[in-house]
Design a protein around this nucleic acid. Structure first.
Lengths: 172, 172
DNA sequence: AAAAACTTTCAATAAATTTTGAAAGTTCAG
DNA sequence: CTGAACTTTCAAAATTTATTGAAAGTTTTT
């Protein structure tokens, strides 16, 4: 496989992968392109390489910056803005965990608390099943909240490795 | 908040949440409905409670069964099929991890291997950045593969709890 | 201050995904 | 077998999401 073929395949696959995770295809493709580019790229280069419009490129680059996965690079003496992606996948993973936690789990926890305070007679099985389920989800979420905070703080090359050892040790 | 209000809110929230994860709204809503139902529900009851069509209900129930999150319940002497969801969220989480791993990570690992074998001179920075990035992702994926397998095998109420202790201990 | 170089916005359009519902299929009791 | 009860399929329609591109906005140079 030539480099050009491999690049094209990686961009396509990463894009497809992204859509499974609620990320739009173009955003994932721009990310893929920047991950494999040795130097920062301008919006024009991204538009050209992915055959997308200026508006689309601009919007998705901004989104990637909001996620903390891409940075703007200004070259002295040049008007144009360039963009580069963090290439260390452990940092990328940590950043994604951090953002998703902030955007999802942190918003859900107070909602679950509110739902757990539903009125009604606990002897009614409908009430009981509801509160039991919500409380079960709350316990899980609270645990996940703490765990993810720890992972986010952990040293990059460390967290999954240690996790493996932990589980492996317990099992033997 | 009354039970009816709480149920409606939970179903709506769980549905919205699902769409962030590449799961369709209806599928997540059916799951939510079954999670809080003390007894199994028939397709007709699901259709009615969520105001959705028969085809939609059928399709998404089947998908939930494919994911191993919902089971068919046959009541002796009745023609109609009923459905119930696993209510233990730790089991639900494990099942989701297991399925996503199977559907995504297990497919991606061989692709990464193929991509890492790209031809070209390593002294070319384009080739170097490409292979370095792919290899970085491969290492991450291989680690994640092992870690997730361990998590999937772990006893239900255990894995995140122990994980938290590990991280907490390390930190202090 | 005007033009040039570039970035951002957003209404219109296109594409992808989801939903519907009627028809076809299946199973079973009589 | 036949019909009733139920489930599945799938093409068409509706909805949601993503993309375009031209116009507006901004910053820098002359």
């Amino acid at each position: 496989m030539t480099l050009a073929e491999a690049k094209a395949k990686f961009i396509a696959d990463w894009g497809r992968f992204g859509t499974n995770w609620g990320i739009n295809r173009t955003m994932a493709q721009i990310h893929a392109l920047l991950l494999i580019s040795p130097d920062p790229l301008s919006a024009d280069e991204i538009m050209e390489q992915l055959s997308i419009s200026r508006g689309n490129a601009n919007m998705n680059i901004r989104e990637l910056m909001d996620w903390g996965l891409v940075q703007k690079v200004i070259r002295p003496g040049e008007r144009k803005e360039y963009f580069s992606a963090e290439k260390d996948i452990w940092k990328v993973a940590r950043q994604i965990v951090k953002e998703r936690k902030k955007r999802e789990l942190d918003l859900m926890i107070p909602v679950l608390k509110e739902l757990s305070e539903v009125e009604g007679d606990k002897r009614d099985k409908h009430v009981k099943t509801f509160t039991d389920t919500i409380n079960n989800i709350r316990k899980f979420s609270d645990q996940a909240d703490k765990t993810l905070d720890t992972m986010i703080r952990a040293d990059e090359h460390w967290f999954l490795g240690s996790l493996v050892k932990l589980f492996a040790g317990k099992r033997d």
